[in-house]
């Protein structure tokens, strides 16, 4: 799986960091960054939760 955050949408609400700490990080520009772009499949549940919870729907989870 591969994670992409659309920075045109992201406004730093930080739900992704709560749902999947260690995978996303909120930086000083009020945007979320992906720390691990291709995390192990075992984390898929957390990543998908982060994508679902994102208020701006800025996270895409791609199959490679």
């Amino acid at each position: 799986m591969r994670i992409v955050v659309d920075h045109n949408l992201c406004e730093g609400n930080g739900r992704c960091v709560e749902a999947a700490p260690g995978i996303f990080e909120l930086r000083d520009d009020d945007r979320s960054y992906v720390l691990e772009e291709q995390p192990p499949a075992s984390l898929r549940g957390k990543v998908e939760l982060a994508a679902r919870l994102c208020p701006r729907q800025a996270i895409r989870v791609l199959d490679k």
Partner: peptide, 20 residues
């Protein structure tokens, strides 16, 4: 609508983020 919406929103949106 996008992309106009995002451009307009960007004028003030950082004042409304959790940190803002």
């Amino acid at each position: 609508n996008p992309p106009e919406h995002g451009a307009y929103r960007g004028v003030v949106n950082r004042r409304f983020t959790p940190r803002g």
